[in-house]
Each structure stands twice: as C-alpha cells, then as structure tokens.
Amino acid sequence: MKTLSEQLAQYASYHRDRRNILTHFVGIPMIVLSVSTLLARPVLGQLPLGPWGPLALTPSLLVALLAGLYYLRLDLRYGLVMALWLAASNHAGRLLAEQGTALWLGSGLGLFAVGWAIQFIGHAWEGRKPAFVDDLIGLAMGPLFVVAEAGFLLGLRRDVLCDVQDRTGGVR
C-alpha cells in the first residue's frame, strides 16, 4: 500500500490548476453526500445505541466504515477528519433517505450529477483527465485531497505538504 504522501502526490499531479483544485472543494463534497444519500437505502437492520437511538445499518454505513478504516491506515490525523466527514455525510444521507422517494432520489442523483459536472469543468480548465481514469484509487483520494488541501491552506501538516511538493517537483 502506498504511503499518504505517495497517494497525495499522485493525485496532486493531476491537479495543478488552482481553478481545478477549487472545483474539488465544491464538487467532491457534493459527490460524497450523494453517494451517502443513494446508499442510505435500504436499511438492512438496526443497531441499538442506547440513549442515542438506533443506528441504521445501510450500505452507506458499510462504505463509510471501510473508507474510514482505509484513511485511518494511511494517516491517523487525516483519518480522523475523514471519519468525521464520512459520519456527517452518512447522517445527512440517512436523513434524506428517510424522506419520500422523490426527494431522496432527486437529492442523491442531483448532487451526484452536479458534483461531477463541477469536477469535469475543473478538469477541462486543467486540460487533464481525472486521476481515477488511470487508477481507481483516485476516487478515494479525492475527498482526502480536499481535506489535505484545506489543512495546507490553514498552515497544517507542513511536513506532508513538503513531501508532496518534493514528489511532484515543487507543485501540489
């Protein structure tokens, strides 16, 4: 398994245009929420959580747990942030899934379509295909890339930023 810096550097090599990176801050959260929403049905069971009520066992929860474990294996700090994001998306998706079919499906498909449209606009500006076209792990790296870029903008994880820049020739 590649390291965090290797994964981010590979993903960053497809994302050098600032406009493309900005589209990822909008499009990727929409796509994550859409997937959480669409996979929030069916409910396969309930797990009692005491005073918090039951936790719906859904395909969305399974995907969030597996992705969260992957991110935690890559890096504890980023993994915790990603786990919180995935939990929030899972919860929001579940709330949408509890609504009528038209609202649930319309929200999920609408977020998915608009999120991907924004992504493809960014890649048109970049003049480069999305990273997942060459390596499907790019689908999992997109959300982590957004979190890492947000951290870099806040001055966090300078060690990771420097390593990514070294691996991409000074560009992230």
Rank of each mutant, 00 (worst) to 15 (best):
R73S: 14
P59Y: 02
L47E: 04
A67I: 14
L49E: 04
G68D: 07
P51C: 01
L69E: 13
P59D: 04
G53W: 00
R41H: 08
L76M: 15
G53I: 02
Y70G: 03
T37Q: 08
S36T: 04
P54D: 09
A40K: 12
A67G: 10
D75C: 03
L61H: 07
V35P: 00
L61A: 02
G50P: 02
S36K: 06
L49R: 09
Y71R: 08
A40H: 03
L55K: 12
T37Y: 10
T58V: 06
L65Q: 08
L38F: 05
V35R: 04
L66S: 09
G45F: 09
G68R: 11
L44M: 14
V35T: 08
T37E: 11
L47T: 10
P54R: 03
A40I: 06
L39D: 07
G68A: 12
Q46P: 00
A67H: 12
L72I: 06
L66P: 02
S36C: 13
L57F: 03
A40R: 05
L76G: 09
G68K: 12
Y71M: 05
L57R: 09
S36I: 08
G50E: 01
A67R: 11
A56G: 04
Q46W: 14
Q46S: 15
V43K: 01
L69C: 14
D75E: 02
L49Y: 01
P51N: 00
L76K: 15
G53Y: 04
L47C: 07
V63I: 13
A40C: 10
L44Y: 08
A64Y: 04
P59H: 09
L76A: 15
R73I: 09
L38N: 11
V63G: 03
L47K: 12
L62M: 15
L69Q: 10
A64V: 11
L66Q: 05
Q46G: 00
L61K: 03
V43A: 02
L49W: 12
P48E: 10
V35K: 00
Y71P: 01
L55F: 04
L38V: 02
Y71E: 06
G50V: 03
Q46I: 01
L44D: 11
D75I: 00
P51A: 12
L44E: 05
L62E: 10
A67N: 12
R73K: 15
L72C: 06
V63Y: 07
V35Y: 03
G50D: 08
L76I: 13
A56S: 15
L57C: 08
V63L: 15
L39Q: 03
L66H: 07
L72K: 14
L74H: 00
D75G: 02
V43S: 01
W52H: 13
P59R: 13
A67M: 13
L38H: 07
L76H: 14
W52M: 15
P42I: 02
A40L: 04
